[in-house]
Design a protein around this nucleic acid. Sequence first.
DNA 1: CTTTAAACAGATTAAATTATCTGATTAATT
DNA 2: AATTAATCAGATAATTTAATCTGTTTAAAG
Lengths: 146, 146
Amino acid sequence: MTVIFSKKCEYGLQAVLYLSTIEDGRTAPAEEISKKLNIPKEFVSKILQSLALKKIVGSKKGNSGGFFLGKPASQIKLIEIVEAIDGLSLFHNCVLGFPDCSPESPCPVHNKWGKLRSDAYDMLTKETLEQFKKKSIAKIKMMNDV
Amino acid sequence: MTVIFSKKCEYGLQAVLYLSTIEDGRTAPAEEISKKLNIPKEFVSKILQSLALKKIVGSKKGNSGGFFLGKPASQIKLIEIVEAIDGLSLFHNCVLGFPDCSPESPCPVHNKWGKLRSDAYDMLTKETLEQFKKKSIAKIKMMNDV
DNA sequence: CTTTAAACAGATTAAATTATCTGATTAATT
DNA sequence: AATTAATCAGATAATTTAATCTGTTTAAAG
């Protein structure tokens, strides 16, 4: 089981973070991303294709083609990737699965979860890939060093 | 998509909360729980059977049998149900799905998620079914009133 | 202009999760 | 003793998610 995102979304987030770490102007083929992140190649390729439709990443066919960020890292937030892949229902639905959970008909943990949910939203919204860059580089380096 | 728990776990949590609202000494058959919570009968029955093995709920076969809490509501915490059904990996795994996320090799949101995760854990650990009782009664009433 | 390496498209398979079915056992009630 | 209403057990079906395969298009490099 994943934590809160689907596998597709986790892979998408990782892949985009990876793209934020490569040299400017360079393009990363699916095979490279797959190897660096241990994600099935065809799967990550499909995911990035879908993100390309939303202009979050760009792609280039043919020899020496591959994927790259669709806009400057300073203009991409993690929430965009989540929205594009899993959607935002995570931030609307009741954590216990009760129907119509709302201030008028709250579940037993409604208030507590509301706070958590908004903090989680902030985590994905307040910083850009640019601000995550150093940490992303470090994490990906660690993964391939060992 | 569910928020953080599997459907099985959501149903289990709802069902146990329901059991905490019924009159002491009474037993609720799967059919009743199913109707009140809009959960497939056989499914909720299976889930409660598995919780019965862990003594979180009790069960009684035969005519006028059904399910009931396995111990006083003041001694049951939501985390027990989560642990019994989904397990606790939610509280160990990286929210972005990176392998070996730790203070030594943190993902870009490691610290922020760490705080959130521990708040989520508290939400499931600090209060008992007894303390949720009023809210549970109100929520379940609302669901069936409309 | 041929080769090569890539995205892209569509179909298919595999695995996990969710849901249902069938029958057996159990126990209270009539 | 018979009927009824329930859990329980095991199998199966349906759905969703994850992963793979096959082939086509594209474009750089030799």
